[in-house]
């Protein structure tokens, strides 16, 4: 059930071709022959029940894992076999995780600077840029707070600021509202909307919440490691 309005191959920022992922330990085919093109500036939600392969796909798209077969290209560069995976992750991908993964001993300001060590910014620009990013997520007054001194919603906003540290063209979010209450979750989704609209960041969000998926321009449904459907959201659904 493919939508004719899906992005042209030439406009793909991220492209997966016949990607499979087999976990030999459990002899589990988490993904089988998945092909997907995510256009530049697109806001894509990936949905599916538990065990459908959503997180596996996100990990492969984010160069955190390598496919058993198939090819993934980010901005025209093949991910599998690349010697520069760290550099690709640092400069081209921003990650937002369900559990935030902030470093507990560092302040909000310092956490945001972590990806900048491998980014294009000279060291003297790290702190000012981190301050700007924290201000942009509404945490201008929380620079020196440790993660344990922030609410879960604030922690996720720090993680979003961190994901934007190196101005990556792609942001991958794995259940970004999974640990948040509805108000904090709504604030995070508003931030994603703004990032997508203002910065034209390509957003890929994993969720099993229809309300989260409704914010995206396009929704891919996975089931048993296959793409079940791939369609654009109708404008009124947003």
């Amino acid at each position: 059930m493919n939508d004719p309005a899906l992005p042209e191959a030439s406009n793909c920022l991220l492209r997966a071709e016949c990607v499979s992922r087999l976990y030999p330990d459990g002899d589990v085919h988490a993904l089988q022959d998945v092909s997907l093109c995510v256009g530049r500036g697109e806001y894509l939600a990936i949905m599916g029940p538990s065990g459908s392969g959503k997180s596996t796909l996100l990990n492969l798209l984010g160069a955190l894992d390598t496919p058993s077969s198939g090819t993934i290209l980010l901005d025209g560069e093949r991910l599998e076999g690349s010697a520069n995976l760290s550099r690709i992750r640092a400069r081209k991908i921003g990650f937002v995780f369900q559990s935030f993964y902030l470093l507990p001993t560092l302040t909000a300001l310092e956490n945001v600077q972590i990806p900048m060590f491998e980014g294009p910014w000279p060291p003297q620009e790290h702190a000012p840029r981190a301050r700007e990013l924290l201000a942009s997520v509404g945490l201008a007054d929380r620079h020196h707070h440790l993660p344990c001194q922030l609410s879960v919603g604030q922690r996720q906003r720090v993680a979003i600021a961190r994901a934007m540290a190196n101005d990556p063209p792609l942001m991958l979010a794995d259940e970004p509202t999974g640990n948040l209450d509805s108000r904090a979750g709504g604030e995070v989704l508003d931030l994603f909307d703004r990032l997508h609209r203002v910065s034209n960041v390509t957003l890929v969000v994993i969720t099993h919440t229809p309300e989260v998926a409704a914010r995206a321009e396009r929704v891919v449904h996975l089931r048993d490691g296959h793409i079940e459907s791939d369609a654009r959201n109708s404008p009124c659904g947003k």
């Binding site: 955190l64 760290s86 550099r87 640092a90 990650f95 972590i114």
Partner: peptide, 13 residues
């Protein structure tokens, strides 16, 4: 977990 996060965020080995 923290070291894995650093690797995920692009810190090289």
């Amino acid at each position: 977990g923290e070291l894995g996060t650093l690797r995920a965020l692009g810190w090289p080995a």
